[in-house]
Computed example of a mutant assay.
Amino acid sequence: MTFGWNVLWSAVAVVALVTALFGYAASRKRFDLIDSFWGPGFAVIAALTYVLSEHSARALVVAVLTVVWGVRLGWHIHSRNRRKPEDQRYVDMYARAKGNPLAKMYRVYLLQAAIMLVVSLPVQFAAHTTAAFGVLDYLGVAVWLVGFAFESIGDYQLERFKADPASKGQVMDRGLWRYTRHPNYFGDACVWWGLFLFACSTPWASVLVVSPLLMTFLLAKGSGKPLLEKDIAQRRPGYAEYVRRTSGFFPLPPKAR
């Protein structure tokens, strides 16, 4: 099985899964379910890629790291969202849709599938490379570990903060959140830069840099950080001051108050 065939089968699998999920979401009239599928979607691609590969050490490591990341993220988002109303972004998208709102929402699902496919290209490519496990692979593991730690610890710290009644209306500026306003997004980006390094055993890897770049852009400039911070300053007193002293993405020492 070649890399090209791997991409084709991954596309078929992801489109089929998001289509089935869309049907379920439409029946429930809750379209933010795609967010819970984001991480597991990558896990499906990684597992399928390993099955289609030659089962090398690199293919196994990349598959395990991607599945661990994807399943944790999916469970975290599902656990968080099932106790809340539908994400307002999807409510607004459905309300703004003209003509056939369901068709518009299905295109949103297909866009998510396309992004998954592009971002996962290094995972698919790395599983089909034949070079021996080397320095770049070990570096990839290290970067992945940093990212996974930032993302999972950041999510845990925020959940603990929100669960404390005394924190209501306050700004989370403790732990990792003292050094970056989005440790989970920074960690997510690191995870994908780490996975990209596994594909760097050949010169063709320079083309695949578009994948971690796309993920980092989405988190820092696209649908991640900007949308999350859009109106939070109006809802939480003190957030403007938090923004002034705290890095927006890359962890840095906080500025003096």
Rank of each mutant, 00 (worst) to 15 (best):
L197T: 00
P40A: 08
V12Q: 10
A63C: 15
K221F: 14
A20T: 06
V143Q: 01
V123S: 00
A13C: 06
R107W: 10
L21V: 11
P122L: 05
I232P: 09
F249G: 06
P165M: 04
A26I: 02
L252P: 06
Q170R: 14
E229A: 04
F125S: 01
F148R: 12
V12G: 09
A126Y: 01
R82K: 15
S247P: 10
A97C: 08
L195M: 11
H76C: 07
P85M: 09
R83Y: 07
K221Y: 14
N184A: 03
A149R: 12
S56W: 03
T49H: 04
F3Q: 04
F196A: 03
M93W: 15
G23A: 13
N100R: 14
H76L: 07
V68G: 09
V143F: 01
A97R: 07
F42K: 02
Y94V: 07
L197P: 00
L136S: 13
N81R: 10
S211N: 06
F22S: 09
L139D: 00
G140I: 03
F161M: 12
T2N: 15
A205C: 15
R257L: 11
A149W: 14
A166C: 06
V135E: 01
V44N: 08
L208M: 05
W9L: 15
Q124W: 00
S56P: 05
V51C: 07
A240V: 04
P253F: 03
L73S: 03
Y185D: 03
H55Y: 11
Y90D: 03
V143M: 02
Y109T: 01
D32H: 03
F249C: 09
P183C: 11
Q234P: 04
V123L: 00
G41P: 10
V67M: 14
L158Y: 12
A142F: 13
W204Q: 13
A43I: 03
Y239E: 06
Y138Q: 05
A166I: 07
A220W: 06
L227G: 04
F42R: 02
Y106D: 01
S206G: 14
T130I: 02
K98D: 11
A127R: 00
V62C: 01
K230P: 08
G222N: 00
F37Q: 03
M172F: 09
L48P: 03
H76F: 15
F31D: 00
I45A: 05
V143D: 01
K230L: 12
F186M: 05
L117A: 00
F249W: 11
D173H: 13
G39K: 02
G222Q: 00
S56F: 04
G39N: 04
G140P: 04
E159N: 13
A113G: 12
L110N: 06
Y156V: 11
